[in-house]
Amino acid sequence: MKKMKQKKTFKHDTPLIKQDVKKLGKIEVEKSAEMGPTPVEGDVAKLQKRKQISSVKEKNYLLIPDEYMLLKQKVTFKFQNLDYKEAMGLMAKIGDVNILVGEEVAGAITAELSDVPWDKAFNALLDMKNFAADIDVNSNLIRVHSPATLTSQESYKSARASAVRKKVELESSVEPVVSEIFRLYYITPAEAKATISELFTSTGEGSTYSPIQVTEEKTTRSIIVRGKAKDLDVVDSVIREIDVRTKQVLIEAFIVEATSSFERALGNKLGAAYTRKSLRAGGTIEGSTIGNPSGSEAALQ
């Protein structure tokens, strides 16, 4: 008896699109990245914090910060007709701080305080004789003067600072002006120019001033900055922080044009058949017809 030839089960394991689109897309992205600098991932969610570029610590010449514990300790004292300068000397020893008393400060003081913070007691002694103080705890120094003397000293220092600032500006005006080109890889020249210009522009007395000049160069995707060397160093630091590659999403899509001939070819590959609107699409395997339509369930209307 002849052994019946067993029909082979059709197995469709060949993809319609043989190329790995995702892999090819990743290769193209890596090629573009190699043309630029080593990217810094601008992933805010990953860092979970802001990056500090600069910091300016302001000085307070009127109040004493809480971190100076000796100047916040509670004190108790009783002054009976004590010379004011000697009273300030005792306060200096208790608070372990240098207190300079002006020559115009004179007189005696009588006061009794119990369990009062040092800084509150010090201000109370100033108010009793209508004196003022310049407090610089960072330098461990406090100056006590009459209000008129202290105001005169501050006015002189302000005028002196203004003169020094003008001198520094005059000296810096003779520094050489340099022009440098900064090539961009991930942001546009317009975006870089807007950021840099806003960073360096200052407004005062109804006019604006910028120590640098920024020019866009769209052809080479870069900006040209003209200014002093120290300002160009700041520009370079800022560009390195903002011209970074961000996370990208690769979208994989396939566009297939389906026609009646495509359906017939697809049926031949899959070994399937169906009838739709009196049109039969199907195929055969080894001479056997697959998927002969029968009944209402086999027809797709």
Rank of each mutant, 00 (worst) to 15 (best):
M35Q: 15
V234D: 09
V249W: 05
T201F: 01
P211F: 08
S114A: 14
K166S: 04
E67I: 15
V249P: 01
I290M: 03
V174F: 05
V214K: 01
E216P: 05
G89P: 00
S114L: 09
R226V: 13
V164Q: 11
N123Y: 06
N60Q: 00
A253I: 13
V235N: 11
R165V: 06
A273H: 05
T188Y: 06
I181Q: 13
E112W: 02
A33M: 06
K23C: 05
V44Y: 06
E198C: 01
K269T: 12
N60L: 01
A132G: 10
K277A: 10
V234C: 03
T195H: 04
K120P: 07
E103Y: 11
T149C: 08
L266K: 05
T38Q: 07
T284C: 03
V249C: 05
L300P: 08
G267D: 00
T259W: 06
R264Q: 15
F79I: 11
N292G: 09
I142L: 02
V101N: 01
A124M: 13
A45M: 00
E175H: 10
L279F: 02
D96T: 11
K93H: 15
E297M: 04
E297V: 15
E180I: 03
I255H: 11
R160Y: 13
R276H: 10
E180V: 08
E180N: 09
G107A: 07
V234R: 08
F10W: 10
V97G: 05
S172R: 10
A273N: 08
S139R: 12
R160I: 05
D134H: 10
D96A: 04
P117K: 13
I224V: 14
K277M: 12
M91G: 05
